[in-house]
């Protein structure tokens, strides 16, 4: 169920983990997860989707972004560039044939692969939401912080956002990054039915949405 893959890092290669349904089949899908808290909120949904893809005869791989989940690497050392390099490496290691990028994953997925992007989001939007969460909780605690000042500080020295120690290069990258999909098909939430799981304060799953996503991917691979 778990597979290791070698990932380049600042201190040499690191061994990263991926959740894998691998039976050496012809169709092999790399899933590039959403970023930050949205990755946690969508993980169960993606795992359930992978089970269905497995039943439909499609191998799938959900690698950890370096610094996230079970990764041995330091989150503070990460950047969009590092994540892009890592996802390209995972794609090569698992010899995938297609890709599914989820939300902020569309900022770092290997764009040369055919596939899908699920509700891609701009880096600036991801950043804005985390800055906002920080200023709101500061205000609750009686401190006054504003997004513009935080951002300026973050560009120079990095910033703690939503429990993540974001390095300056990650902040700078997020400010300008736009989804890099080119030829991949964009899947909208409305196609899956129900509410978007990455919005939920509590991680959830929705069998109907996993059914819909897996069926869509299997159908379009077969087409």
């Amino acid at each position: 169920m778990f597979a290791d893959w070698p990932c380049p890092g600042p201190e040499g290669p690191a061994s990263e983990q991926a959740l894998a349904f691998d039976r050496d089949r012809a169709h092999r899908l790399l899933i590039v997860p959403a970023l930050f808290e949205e990755a946690n909120r969508t993980r169960r949904f993606l795992v359930e989707t992978m089970r269905r893809l497995d039943a439909a005869g499609i191998d799938s791989f959900l690698p950890d972004l370096p610094g996230c989940n079970e990764s041995p690497q330091d989150f503070a050392a990460q950047s969009l560039h590092a994540w892009r390099t890592a996802m390209a490496q995972a794609a090569a290691h698992f010899a995938v044939t297609r890709v599914l990028a989820v939300r902020g994953g569309a900022l770092v997925f290997p764009t040369s692969l055919p596939g899908w992007v699920l509700e891609p989001v701009k880096g600036a939007t991801v950043l804005r939401q985390m800055l906002r969460a920080r200023t709101l909780s500061a205000r609750e605690a009686g401190r006054d912080e504003d997004s513009a000042t935080l951002l300026e500080h973050g560009r120079a020295e990095g910033l703690d956002l939503a429990g993540y120690r974001c390095g300056a290069s990650l902040i700078a990258g997020l400010e300008t990054a736009v989804p890099a999909d080119e030829g991949q098909r964009t899947i909208r939430q409305a196609e899956l039915g129900g509410g978007a799981l990455w919005l939920r304060a509590e991680p959830g799953e929705d069998a109907a949405q996993s059914d819909a996503l897996a069926a869509m991917i299997a159908r379009e691979i077969a087409a």
Binding site: E37, T125, R132, A133, L136, S137, A162, A201, E202
Partner: peptide, 17 residues
């Protein structure tokens, strides 16, 4: 209880969108 500061941030971003 569902509406903590993280959820407020999500709510406002979604409203903007």
């Amino acid at each position: 209880p569902e509406l903590d500061s993280m959820a407020v941030a999500g709510l406002l971003t979604e409203m903007e969108d």
